[in-house]
Computed example of a mutant assay.
Amino acid sequence: MLTAMQLADAERHDLSNLVDTERYPLDRPDDPTLLAAIEEARADLDREGCAVLRGFLREDRLTQMREECQELASKSFYNTREVNAYFTADDPALPEGDPRRLFMTRTSGFVTRDMITADRIMQRLYVSPAMKSLVARCLGEDQVYEYADPYAGLVLNVLPEGTEQPWHYDTNEFIVTMMTQAPEEGGVFEYCPDIRTPQDENYAGVGAVIRDEDRDRVRRLNLRPGDLQLFKGRFSLHRVTRVEGATPRLTAIFAYSQSPGVVGRLERTRQLYGRVSELHIQAEQDRAERADGLLD
């Protein structure tokens, strides 16, 4: 019944019925246990561009969230296309070995936020002030904001057998994810910390990684269902390797931004989700060039 149903609430600070608050006491911001976890996450992000809060979700809620994600996965939009790491078109004027001309097959599925109802654990976590506060503190930000994008911000990524996410960057400087179901084989998260900067795309280094000529700077992350991952994907090339076996890889993606009102790029939204809204069209018309000057 609705009276017994917990809904996403942007004013609810107490996540004790979802999160393992023995390890992460979000309702006690100055608790030494929480402060130690935040300090460790900050250090990992500074050093590696990535931090993992192990066992973030309560075990019973992980089971529930996995079941919710399995149900949502049936609504996924799947798209297969050839993309480079920047989601840009081919430029024949560039040398063949340039990473902007290295195209990879991307096949993955997404369930967008407008399909994820307010009673889902994903939504309840995403809108919670306690969750946003934790993410901001780990990243050293004063505040983080939900996306204004009606599709992105909160999505479920679905990778069934034979699919993968090839090397790419994120549009946002950071991303927060939680795998809810691991595949039988494959589906490994790999990344290259800070392979580019706002001043240098480092095309030579990026190309060597994509061509599999340089594995020295590639890190492999052992993620487990229920772990919360914070990742600086704007500057770190990353991918999810091919999934093998009948069990799909399911991952909740919580996208926050450093400023309010963020809406995804028009063409990237079309590629990822198969549709755009009037808001995306208007935002593209109004969009100024990115301040950091990077290609994507």
Results as ranks from 00 to 15, higher is better:
Met5Glu: 03
Ala10Asp: 10
Ser16Cys: 06
Ser16Ala: 12
Leu18Tyr: 05
Arg23Lys: 14
Arg23Val: 00
Pro25Gly: 02
Asp30Met: 12
Ala37Trp: 02
Glu40Gln: 15
Asp44Cys: 12
Glu48Trp: 07
Glu48Asp: 13
Ala51Val: 12
Gly55Val: 03
Glu59Thr: 06
Asp60Cys: 08
Leu62Pro: 08
Thr63Glu: 08
Gln70Leu: 12
Glu71Asp: 14
Ala73Ile: 02
Lys75Ala: 03
Lys75Gly: 06
Ser76Pro: 03
Tyr78Thr: 02
Thr80Pro: 08
Tyr86Trp: 15
Phe87His: 06
Asp90Glu: 14
Ala93Gln: 14
Ala93Phe: 03
Gly97Glu: 01
Gly97Ile: 08
Leu102Met: 01
Thr107Glu: 13
Val111Ile: 06
Arg113Ile: 01
Ile116His: 02
Ile121Arg: 07
Met122Asn: 09
Gln123Glu: 11
Arg124Gln: 13
Cys138Met: 00
Leu139Gly: 03
Asp142Pro: 05
Asp149Ala: 04
Leu159Gly: 01
Ile175Pro: 01
Ala182Val: 06
Gly186Asn: 00
Phe189Leu: 10
Phe189Cys: 06
Pro193Gln: 01
Gln199Leu: 15
Asp200Tyr: 13
Gly205Ala: 15
Asp214Phe: 10
Asn222Lys: 14
Gly226Arg: 00
Phe231Met: 12
Phe231Tyr: 02
Phe235Gln: 02
Val240Thr: 11
Val243Trp: 02
Glu244Arg: 15
Gly245Ala: 09
Gly245Met: 04
Pro248Tyr: 10
Ile253Arg: 01
Gly261Gln: 04
Val263Thr: 11
Val263Ile: 15
Leu266Ser: 08
Val276Thr: 15
Gln285His: 12
Arg290Met: 06
